[in-house]
Nucleic acid binder design. Structure first.
Lengths: 339, 339
DNA sequence: TTGTAGGCGTTATCAC
DNA sequence: GTGATAACGCCTACAA
């Protein structure tokens, strides 16, 4: 049996509204009675029923987070950041995986709406334009992380994919590479487009080889990187360096290269994107573009909480990636990245 | 403005209870009016308010999941499994990280209670005995995954750590190793104790070297494995094979070994535990004991949902790990696991 | 089959 | 400062 403010009221011989006040706003009630009520509440082991409160206040102190899958290390890091600041502010977080399935994503968002979450953060949404009205239907603030569908109907926080890609490719060019491949995520993803664009930018600027045969597509996961790398290796003139859409893709590429007896970075350089916790532990340790993952998550949550409180915040925040030098890149033919 | 059953009632010229019935239990209301009401609801874009419903039914259709951190790949896999079956049954899941901090874990559980979740799954709880009353205070079913604190006050699903460890070490022994090291998680963890026990079992059974100098402790993460492996290598007579508490630990150990110029498995064999998605992509691909992670998560959720429905289920389910042969183990001195 | 009336646990607005 | 009283949105006897 769970006890309510009415139970306390009965024991304290006051009305339940006085109990409510004593518990919420201590100085809206007589000092003495207030203390007495709180003591009784404590001794009875009272715990507020958030559901009842939510119904009365029209606020649930809850946010919904929808991601493709939390099994993706990048996603997990971001979610950690979100959960962190939410928890600090006493917000609970609903987590739902969409598996990049638009139907499921829509279902999840709808369910969040039914549950009256105070706000939503959507990560790497795959849903298109028809999604917009649905999201607005919720009547709650929305923050998008790495929005895959261009549009500005909600607040967003994302990395500068194009510039990050430029940084990566520039690094390769600086090392002396001229024939640089790209292993992307699936076609049509905004971030893949952008990273590819950055890759092209630098190649063209430097007058290096540009050719569609140098571009292969994976799926953002290791297996995708593995098979895509195979395609690049099969070229009559394979690249001497490869820029991968993300670290998971690079991880798969490394495996493929090793299986083909190629030395990294001596025979071919590899650079990733994300800087996952595991990337230091790959063989060789992966050079990559770091995304401030947890920070992005914290930012997203902080932004959302501000919006919920009615504060106004920047509609769009864009963070920059930074180059993390490790051992998977070197000048063509060099085994040592520092040599 | 969000619309309620009263709004629909007004339009349909019926009472709101009829609307409620028409929406819930179609055949508890006249066929015609029922259809008419539903049509009106649809056209008005009605969405049920789950908060109101929860207050009335005393059920939230929500479960709480508390984990150390979802940034741990093993945890993420399990959570995915949980979320999967929860979502299928229209349960929403609250996710909270405890960061292995008992205070935070307690706070989280309490918050779940206040939110009237219908059930809770706790993963790898670090909290001790005082936790027990708190958990019971919730008055909801609880399922523990890999409970780190021995006790039988709630349903649990876990892997047979001891047997899994035995399998791992037996594999090493079968390959001809006699001097086998163990890199554990922190002291005091139940699963570490059990895996260590399994390791000792086999060593003693085989009459192989047993010595505390062969045991080092990490922290369940890669860095821990890295430094612990360093300690083992510093031995005047280092082991020829190492059994690691988990794959992340093994990952760190591999890095250390490589940095010391050691070849795996030629100079030293390494076996892990978990079989993370990334483990195939390590260099060399990691031989390990597979835990059915997503399945364990699905099991936990399915068990919890049954308990919530009042069905009775096994108090304890124990799954077995299976040996996954890859390339990080071989006979002493052999470079090829198959040679 | 349908409507009336309570109640779920809180908060909030009034009078007193 | 305190107590009625009325929401909040829904469900569910009970009565009609």
């Amino acid at each position: 049996m769970t006890i309510s403010i009415k139970d306390i009221a009965r024991v304290a011989r006051v009305s339940h509204s006085t109990v409510s006040r004593a518990l919420q706003n201590p100085n809206a009630v007589n000092e003495q009675t207030g203390e007495r009520i709180r003591e009784i509440a404590r001794s009875m082991g009272y715990r507020p029923n958030v559901i009842g409160r939510s119904l009365a206040t029209q606020r649930t102190h809850t946010i919904g987070v929808v991601v493709t899958t939390v099994a993706d290390p990048f996603v997990a890091e971001v979610v950690t950041g979100i959960e962190d600041v939410a928890q600090r502010d006493n917000y609970a977080v609903f987590l739902a995986n969409s598996n990049a399935d638009p139907e499921r994503e829509i279902g999840v968002v709808r369910s969040f709406g039914d549950r009256r979450v105070d706000g939503v953060v959507v990560m790497a949404s795959r849903v298109g334009a028809m999604y917009l009205p649905l999201l607005n239907e919720l009547h709650v603030p929305i923050v998008l992380i790495d929005n895959q569908h261009p549009g500005r109907f909600a607040h967003s926080i994302s990395i500068d994919d194009r510039e990050g890609a430029r940084t990566a490719v520039r690094h390769l060019l600086d090392l002396g590479h001229r024939r640089i491949g790209y292993i992307g995520d699936r076609y049509g993803l905004q971030s893949d487009d952008d990273r590819f664009a950055g890759y092209r930018d630098e190649l063209e600027r430097a007058g290096a080889d540009v050719g569609s045969e140098l571009v292969a597509h994976g799926n953002g996961r290791a297996e995708g990187g593995l098979t895509a790398a195979g395609r690049l290796l099969a070229l009559r003139e394979p690249p001497t360096a490869v820029f991968c859409y993300n670290d998971m893709t690079a991880m798969g590429a490394l495996r493929c290269l090793h299986d083909h007896g190629m030395q990294v970075p001596k025979d071919i350089s590899v650079i990733g994107f994300d800087d996952l916790p595991i990337s230091t532990f790959l063989q060789p340790p992966l050079t990559t573009i770091r995304q401030p993952k947890a920070e992005m998550g914290r930012d997203a949550a902080a932004t959302l909480l501000k919006l919920i409180r009615g504060e106004t915040v920047d509609v769009r925040t864009r963070v920059q990636g930074t180059l993390v030098l490790r051992s998977s890149t070197a000048a063509p033919g060099k085994a040592n990245p520092n040599g």
